[in-house]
């Protein structure tokens, strides 16, 4: 297969959802836990691709976002979010290029968050001319679900407490207090498989990205949307642990569940009117941890306001994307 990308499989999805739009509704979920004893972790939940379920088991152990948190013992939640955005951009680029018979030698994306803006750069190898690169990157800017989730404001509904009641904190505005800058380099490997490595001064473990096998992948890792959702869940969970501790003096475990939908007709342009970016984003904090209602509301509001990943999704921060064509290596 060209670029190991199953173009025929995506073509079949295009025609399937034109016949049955319900098959275009993709649902993703992720969950994060912040524990004073077991640290910060995130995992994905079962995904639904139209009428087909994909239940994979992937989890990531993370570094706490607090400035005084532990050192280089895992990625930050922001690394997961950036990995989700960049891997979606590269999958869109390679997939779209494969559809028009482009053969790639390489495709990498560096992406960095400095606390207020995102800077990114795509390097493409094997593509014959700059015009093709520009066209492909333009398609990423328009059709990549996660990249457009970054560049367009996407509201996230916040619910908390035993009844999962809607929270007014879901309307938090303005840039969050600056946390740790984060950057990673995402490298396209083959087909829908990519690897992401933190670009922080300290080395970090590579994160694997892949489409589920229901969508032509091989289950090598979570998919880009799931990384973005895990990043959000973990960021909120981490801040909840810190904020609750500052407010009440108690170190408590927290669980945060995030879900979101994608109309894949937007990515594939099976339906030009379809929304490309993620939709129906919802973040739920189901565990009240024994706090009073007022304490819980304050902790949730503070964590929500402090979450940089939440800001990334909701606020459409400044984004700079550049691209570069890498000359082919001589044979």
């Amino acid at each position: 297969m060209r670029n190991s990308f199953n173009t025929a499989g995506f073509s079949e999805v295009v025609h399937e959802i034109r016949n049955d739009p319900a098959e275009a509704a993709f649902l993703y979920s992720a969950e994060a836990c912040s524990s004073p004893y077991r640290g910060l972790s995130a995992k994905i939940g079962p995904a639904l691709f139209g009428t087909v379920k994909s239940a994979r088991r992937f989890s990531v152990e993370l570094r706490d976002v607090a400035p005084d948190g532990p050192g280089p013992d895992g990625p930050l939640p922001m690394h997961l979010a950036l990995t989700g955005i960049a891997s979606c951009a590269l999958t869109t680029l390679v997939g779209g290029g494969s559809a028009q018979s482009v053969v790639f030698e390489s495709a990498d994306m560096d992406i960095a968050w400095d606390g207020g803006a995102v800077t990114s750069r795509i390097d493409v190898g094997g593509v014959p001319d700059d015009a093709t690169v520009a066209e492909l990157v333009g398609q990423v800017e328009r059709f990549s679900p996660n990249y457009t989730t970054l560049t367009r404001p996407v509201p996230v509904a916040l619910r908390y407490g035993p009844d999962a009641a809607p929270a007014s904190a879901g309307t938090a505005e303005g840039a969050p207090p600056t946390g740790r800058p984060a950057a990673c380099r995402v490298r396209w490997i083959s087909g829908t498989q990519l690897a992401s490595a933190p670009l922080d001064p300290e080395p970090g473990e590579e994160l694997r990205v892949d489409a589920p096998k229901q969508l032509t992948g091989v289950d090598w890792g979570p998919n880009p949307q799931e990384y973005l959702l895990m990043g959000l869940a973990a960021d909120v969970a981490s801040h909840l642990g810190r904020c609750a501790r500052e407010l009440t003096g108690r170190a408590l475990p927290w669980r945060v569940v995030v879900r979101g939908t994608e109309d894949v007709g937007g990515l594939l342009q099976a339906d030009p009117s379809a929304v490309v970016q993620l939709q129906d984003m919802r973040c739920t904090v189901p565990d009240a941890s024994g706090l009073s209602g007022a304490e819980l509301e304050k902790a949730v509001a503070a964590a929500w306001a402090a979450s940089e990943v939440r800001y990334l999704i909701e606020a459409a921060p400044a984004v700079r994307l550049s691209s570069h064509r890498v000359e082919s290596c001589p044979a």
């Binding site: 025929a8 295009v14 025609h15 997939g95 559809a99 342009q269």
Partner: peptide, 17 residues
């Protein structure tokens, strides 16, 4: 019918099940 060398994006592909 599913072969299409002129596609510019997924939505132009012509293979269906």
């Amino acid at each position: 019918e599913g072969r299409n060398d002129g596609a510019k994006w997924f939505g132009d592909l012509t293979r269906s099940r």
